[in-house]
């Protein structure tokens, strides 16, 4: 509960920064809208329409008051309420993020574990080198590379979008994979999943590298702990020692780091969605920034911030579940 209360000042500060940052971008909605045809009179006219001629603090208070009611105004690009845009695009990004995290954790934890158990062998060296490359490779570049190789050249996976064009289904939840299952149409779920693989890998590669590295370091650390020696001295089977004593302790730092990845993941989603023409929150945000669509920028970033903070809060709570020392404090 106290942690929840801490959210309020964080979000207030963030919204303030965000509000003024958006307004400090060169150009402005009017310039973006009018382009070449901009004259001082027409700019002033447009500013008046959107209320941008009022004092900034008044605009801010107005924004805050409505944001508290989940009203972020209307998108200038689409003329639809920002909240509606967000709700319709959020499932796409969420699906992408889940695939990326599953990819990163599902591969990174075993890989890091293996590297630690085979410390200083070629597997270990390979994983260390791999994770160095993994964090260094630009998401943009990796995205294009994957798309070129597996979609364009090999044709194994679709190059862009969320589903194949000929599939027209209604989407009760907006989560396409889920919708297919709900409608008893696994083929369309599979189709949606195939669309998620390449962007998921592109987005998940940096987290994969980081999680591999953290898992490896944590397992190496735990393997030398006295309590692991105690567990071995009890004659427990290898599987029990590894699962109950090694992994359970080693995964504590991995959990924290994974939580931190979620924030990075959402910023990575902006690039990935653009590369794969994936109709999620990120690609829409890029468009909104180009169009100086203040309402969308503010609303989207604020919601993303809420999500990041909430996920970290959940991770902290989860940490308390697995580590009794934290629970009591």
């Amino acid at each position: 509960m106290r942690r929840l209360a801490q959210l309020v000042p964080i979000l207030l500060g963030l919204s303030l920064l965000l509000f003024f940052w958006v307004r400090s971008l060169p150009g402005g909605p009017a310039a973006a809208l009018l382009g070449e045809r901009a004259t001082p009179e027409r700019v002033a006219q447009i500013n008046r329409i959107y209320g941008l001629d009022r004092p900034v603090w008044e605009q801010y208070l107005d924004f805050l008051g409505r944001a508290a009611r989940l009203d972020f105004g209307v998108s200038r690009m689409t003329e639809r309420p920002v909240t509606e845009e967000l709700v319709s695009r959020f499932p796409a990004t969420a699906e992408l993020a889940v695939v990326a995290i599953l990819f990163a954790v599902g591969l990174g934890v075993p890989l890091g574990y293996l590297a630690a158990r085979r410390h200083l062998t070629w597997i270990d060296n390979l994983s260390v080198a791999g994770s160095l490359i993994g964090v260094a490779i630009p998401v943009f570049f990796l995205g294009f590379l994957l798309k070129y190789l597996f979609a364009v050249q090999l044709g194994w996976l679709p190059p862009d979008g969320r589903q194949s064009p000929r599939l027209f289904v209604d989407h009760p939840t907006g989560f396409y994979v889920l919708d297919g299952l709900l409608r008893g149409d696994p083929a369309s779920s599979w189709d949606a999943l195939r669309h998620l693989i390449l962007p998921g890998i592109a987005l998940g590669t940096i987290p994969l590298a980081i999680i591999t590295r953290i898992t490896r370091a944590a397992v190496l650390d735990v393997l030398h702990k006295d309590y692991v020696r105690t567990a071995e001295a009890k004659g427990l089977t290898r599987a029990v020692v590894n699962r109950r004593h090694v992994l359970r302790n080693a995964l504590l730092p991995v959990l924290t780091v994974t939580g931190l990845q979620v924030g990075l993941l959402l910023s990575g989603a902006v690039l990935t969605e653009t590369v794969f023409a994936f109709p999620g929150v990120g690609s829409f945000l890029v468009d909104a920034i180009a169009a100086r669509d203040y309402a969308v920028i503010q609303g989207f970033i604020l919601v993303i911030a809420v999500i990041v903070v909430t996920v970290n809060l959940l991770v902290d709570l989860g940490y308390g579940l697995v580590d009794p020392r934290v629970r009591l404090r």
Binding site: D226, Y227, G235, R244, R248, L252
Partner: peptide, 20 residues
């Protein structure tokens, strides 16, 4: 180990698994 030969180590502060 643990059945016929058992061992007690030096430092009880670090020899028990903290999360169990």
């Amino acid at each position: 180990r643990g059945k016929d030969i058992a061992m007690v180590f030096q430092d009880p502060m670090t020899c028990l698994n903290p999360v169990l």
